[in-house]
Every structure is written in structure tokens, then in C-alpha cells.
Amino acid sequence: MSHLITLADGGVLDLSAWPLPDGVEDGVLNRTQLARAFAVTENTITKWIGLGLPVLSEGQNGIAYEFQLSHCWAWKNARDEKARATKARGDQIAAQAMLGFRNLDADQEEEEGHLTADDIRKMSEAEYHRNRVAEQRGDLVRADRVRALFEESLVRIGTSLDTLPDFLEMKFGLTAEQVADVEQRTDQLREKIRGDLEELLRRPGAVLAIGDRQGELGV
């Protein structure tokens, strides 16, 4: 059977969900006694009052605060349970976010999806240190350096493609129509290369070894 009380903030607390432990007698306590019962300081009780701890009567004019032990016990357990649920939800979101940010593939997600946020954090820290060592050895390369290299290469490729029609016209005596065809083809090739490079650089993920994915662009 439920026993509901209304809290100061308008919320409803079901006392039957968190009954006093066996052998603990219910009763009315003052602030000092309640602090002793919960093994906390009176300052903590004052803080709890501000957070919504049920109060039977507020102290004034030399009269002490009064608290029903069963009400306070249920309130504290409900608050602790809510805090645990909030933390568990936060850990779940953090774990999902970390998995997503690490760009796990399907196999990795199956293997690592059960890990807690703390497990993943420790694993990520270890992975970071491994990558740092590998970078210092020259086995890994940073994405910003790859991007700079790609941009420099695009400039060189673009310059070569721009001058290619003129070179072919002079070297092989192409007609104006043939030169136009070459220009159209080089423009298409330039856009294809740029699009492939931009698509590759947009992909999230960890730093990769230089030789791991050679030929991925297909150009």
C-alpha cells in the first residue's frame, strides 16, 4: 500500500517505495538527531532542507526543526536513486558519443559497445599515447599535415592541367575543337580529384599509418 506525501516543491513522494530498514523505529527528530542518524553534519541537513528535505515543522523563536525520520529516509533514497539514474544515463550518453566520435566500424562497435565510459576513456588514453609514440617514429602522420600536402598537390596538379591543352595544341597540332575537348576533360578530372580529397578529409577517425590505405582515392 502506497503512502504519499507532498514535498515543498510540489512533488509527490511514495514512502512505501523506501521503507525504513527492519529494526529501525520511526519517530520525530530534531536537526542534531537527524544528522546523527544519517551520519552527516548539521550543515548537511541544512543544505538538504534547501534541496527539499521534508520538514514537519520549521524552527523559529527558539523552537527546533522537526523531521519525520521515515519521510527523510524515503526522500534521501529517492534523491540518491535519481542521482544514480542521472549518472548512469550520462555515462551511457558519454559512451555512445565516444564510440561515435571514434568512428568505430560495425565489428569494433560489437566488440567495444559493452564498455563503460571509464573503460573507453582509459583505452582512448592508451591509444593516444601509442599514436604519439608512433608519430614520433614517423609511422603516423597528422591530418592537418596531410591536408597541407593535399592542398599543395592540388595547386601543382591544377597548374599542370591548366597548361595541358596549350601544350597538346602546340606539340600535336590539335584543332580548336580538340583543345576544347581536352579542356573539358581536364576540368572534370580536376573536380573529381578535389571532390575525392575533400571527401577523404571530411571523414572522422583516428590518425592512420601512412601506408595503411594507399590507393583509397582511386586516382
Rank of each mutant, 00 (worst) to 15 (best):
K171M: 09
L149M: 07
D80P: 02
F150K: 01
F167L: 09
A94K: 05
G52L: 10
F172T: 10
M123S: 11
D139S: 09
R156L: 13
D107R: 13
A148G: 02
L115W: 08
L115P: 09
L104C: 13
Y65C: 04
A134S: 15
E111N: 12
D139R: 07
F167V: 04
Q60G: 02
Q136Y: 13
K171Y: 05
I63C: 06
G113K: 05
P54T: 01
E135V: 03
D105H: 11
H114L: 12
A88I: 03
T163L: 15
V141M: 09
V55M: 06
A97S: 08
R130N: 13
L174F: 07
G50F: 09
A95F: 03
F101A: 12
T46A: 12
Y128N: 11
T86E: 15
G59H: 00
E127W: 00
G113H: 08
E127D: 11
G100C: 09
T116R: 03
I93A: 07
A74E: 02
P54S: 07
I93W: 06
A64K: 05
E66N: 00
P165E: 00
R84G: 05
E110F: 09
A94C: 06
E169M: 11
G158P: 03
E111K: 14
L174V: 00
E135N: 10
M98Y: 03
D107F: 10
A148I: 00
V146G: 02
K122D: 14
L69T: 04
A117E: 10
D139E: 15
V155Q: 09
L164R: 06
N131C: 12
D91K: 12
L149P: 06
R156Q: 14
L53M: 14
S124E: 15
Q136H: 12
F150V: 12
V155D: 04
E127I: 11
A143D: 01
A117I: 10
E58I: 01
F150D: 13
D162M: 05
S153W: 02
I157G: 03
V146Y: 07
G62M: 04
K76N: 10
T163N: 10
W48E: 09
A126E: 14
L99E: 04
Q136L: 14
A134W: 12
W73N: 03
A85D: 12
L51I: 00
Q96R: 04
K87Y: 02
T116P: 10
L115C: 13
S153E: 00
G62D: 07
G52S: 08
F101G: 05
D162R: 08
S124F: 03
L56I: 08
V55A: 11
D119A: 11
H114W: 11
R132E: 05
Q60V: 08
A97G: 05
R142F: 14
I157F: 07
G100N: 13
R147L: 06
I63G: 07
S160R: 02
L149G: 07
L164H: 06
W75H: 05
E125T: 09
E127L: 10
L104K: 01
A117H: 13
S124D: 15
Q68L: 02
K87D: 01
R121L: 15
R102T: 14
I63V: 14
K122N: 12
K87H: 05
